[in-house]
Design a protein around this nucleic acid. Structure first.
Lengths: 236, 236
DNA sequence: CGAATAGTTGATGTATCTCAAGCAGGGTGG
DNA sequence: CCACCCTGCTTGAGATACATCAACTATTCG
């Protein structure tokens, strides 16, 4: 199964904002100037501080960007799905570490090529904008939401077309459930949500006890009632 | 005194990354197609959900972007100084509220004009990139730093050329102090740092008691030892 | 099958929040 | 010019959500 089937090819939370790849970008990224790279699970694409001379597009799989404090505290700052751009920075070095969550296919192009082409720039801009909106959302989560709301928001991220502004609610009469494949360890989830692994575990157990979710496998969660989880996010 | 003299015209924390305005942008933004707007303190430039048909450049003053949860919790997601762009979004509506912290001068241009010009796009891209790096930093602050570290990081933001990667330390033999003008209420600082007003107040009082800072006026703080504060940020 | 790794659960601690009262600076009107 | 008020800030006492520490259990993989 392709990652996009799970996370939602539309990009999760804000599907209509994630721009479809432009023709020019498509052409370039498939040209011989671009390099295809294949990674396993938990492989590093680049480190914070590396010279930022290439930019990347995730073709298949999932990638996380994270930063470390000197004492080892880690914060996952972004989780990326297919069609996401990463490694595009203002300075000369990457500001984050990039690591795969799943086996992944990545295309990379030379930074100067990306900067030289106006058409590529247009595509990049549109990607950056939806990225900023996601970061704003996540800032609210980290600054103002409780552990329950954080986990609920996290789960909703992976339910396509729900929890968004124009959410239609469950289809009439249909069972309002969904299956979410996390592809992340509890530690990675905790580091993304600004919590500890134990708190994430406790919240998930509690949601299970209350019957709103069922754990089909460690990283495969069935949401029995999407609306219920959505109301726990604090955003509705 | 111009705001830029206080916050640092270079843009605070990452001065060499904040791009200088390009000539094309300069020309456009000063052309008759752009509108100049003047705001007082705590005026709203636009609301979350408003139709996003114009983009803005802050010329003078300071602006905050914030989001609200339905129950009234507020998170300030960005603080902007001169030359910052805002109101550039992927979708049809603004994703944040924009409100002045000080009296401010703003130039606004039509969104379609910005999107139509490749040169303007280039400038916009560069601005968005440094904005993303600042958001990443702030994500680490909200997800992983203690109240002390958050306040210390906040203060360091306003000390030009210090606390950055290539920080040279204090000039040899010179007194290592600095004066910071906050131009924000305790409530706004709290909502930016993901804390309560009481916690911000307590931390500031404690820093004062320990002699690392002095409060010259409510929103005018002297840092007696920049290096000391810098080490309290958790990042060094 | 058994070791290694990841996740859960419990008991306890603590940083930060909440609630409540007191204080200070700036502006207004007498 | 000073008293008064208003708003924003500070301080204290107590509550709590989450972290920490530690033991236990479930998975995965050789």
């Amino acid at each position: 199964m392709a990652y996009s089937d799970r996370i939602g090819a539309s990009g999760g939370k804000i599907p209509d904002l994630r721009p479809g790849p432009s023709q020019v970008w498509q052409d370039y990224v498939r040209s011989p100037r671009a390099k295809t790279l294949r990674f396993g699970e938990h492989d590093v694409v680049f480190y914070e501080g590396d010279a930022a001379d290439r930019v990347y597009e995730l073709i298949e799989g999932a990638i996380m960007l994270y930063k470390l404090l000197p004492d080892g505290r880690r914060q996952v700052v972004e989780i990326l799905g297919p069609q996401s751009l990463f490694g595009v920075v203002a300075g000369k070095i990457y500001d984050c570490n990039a690591e795969t969550l799943t086996p992944a296919v990545v295309r990379s192009i030379d930074r100067r090529d990306a900067e030289g082409s106006a058409d590529l720039q247009g595509h990049i801009s549109r990607c950056l904008l939806s990225q900023i909106e996601t970061l704003h959302e996540h800032t609210v989560l980290l600054g103002r939401k409780s552990a329950f709301e954080r986990v609920a928001s996290f789960l909703m991220r992976f339910v396509p077309n729900r929890g968004v502004a124009d959410c239609l609610g469950p289809r009439e009469g249909a069972k309002d459930d969904a299956v979410v494949l996390l592809t992340m360890t509890r530690q990675e989830i905790a580091d993304y949500l600004g919590l500890t692994i134990e708190t994430v575990s406790r919240v998930i157990s509690d949601l299970k006890r209350r019957g709103v979710i069922a754990i089909e496998k460690q990283d495969r969660i069935r949401i029995n009632n999407v609306c219920a989880i959505c109301h726990l996010t604090g955003a509705h």
